[in-house]
Amino acid sequence: MKTDSIIAYYDGLCPICVHEMKVYVRRGQGRVLLHDVNGDIPDDIDRQAALDALWVRKSDGALVTGWDAFIAIWERSPGFGWLAALTRPTVIKWPLDKLYRFLAPYRPRRKCADGACDLQS
């Protein structure tokens, strides 16, 4: 784990989320680590809150969520820094965060069969 690594707490039952997070892992070159919130999670993260929006633990231990979580990921993923810089100003970030939190509950999710899920991280 690199010293500037972050951990993205994401919904591993969401195919779109899984695909997107894998892109960041490939691009992040060890600076973006994944943790599926459908499995064990740290005590300081509420599972439902983490299912409602992306969460990231920054290298200093601070937790950020929503659009700030995406910005933290983009800052560590080569090729996405411009997107972090573009959406960081509050006047842009605030409406994007509101839109993300409104749309996130409508994302597709795989269903568990017989009470067992195939969890990916």
Rank of each mutant, 00 (worst) to 15 (best):
I6K: 01
I6M: 09
I6T: 08
I7N: 12
I7H: 08
I7R: 14
A8L: 07
Y10M: 14
Y10Q: 12
Y10W: 13
G12C: 04
G12I: 00
C14E: 09
P15D: 12
P15E: 13
C17V: 10
C17F: 10
C17H: 12
V18S: 13
V18G: 10
V18F: 14
V18K: 06
E20D: 12
M21R: 01
K22I: 10
Y24M: 15
Y24I: 07
Y24F: 15
V25G: 05
V25S: 07
V25L: 09
V25I: 09
R26C: 11
R27Y: 08
R27T: 09
G28E: 06
G28Y: 04
G28F: 09
G30D: 06
V32P: 01
L33K: 08
L34G: 12
L34Q: 14
H35N: 12
H35E: 04
D36R: 02
V37D: 04
V37E: 01
V37W: 05
V37H: 03
N38H: 14
G39Q: 12
G39S: 13
D40W: 12
I41W: 02
D44A: 11
D44P: 00
D46Q: 03
R47T: 07
Q48P: 03
Q48S: 13
A49N: 10
A49R: 15
L51W: 02
D52S: 14
D52Q: 09
D52R: 03
L54T: 01
V56I: 10
R57F: 05
R57C: 07
R57I: 08
R57G: 01
K58P: 14
K58I: 06
S59Q: 15
S59A: 15
D60W: 05
D60T: 11
L63G: 02
V64M: 06
V64S: 05
V64C: 08
V64A: 11
G66K: 03
W67T: 05
W67Q: 14
A69F: 06
A69H: 01
F70V: 02
F70Y: 09
F70G: 00
I71W: 00
I73E: 03
R76V: 05
S77T: 09
S77P: 10
P78C: 08
P78G: 07
G79W: 00
G79F: 02
G79P: 06
G81M: 13
G81V: 11
W82A: 11
L83W: 11
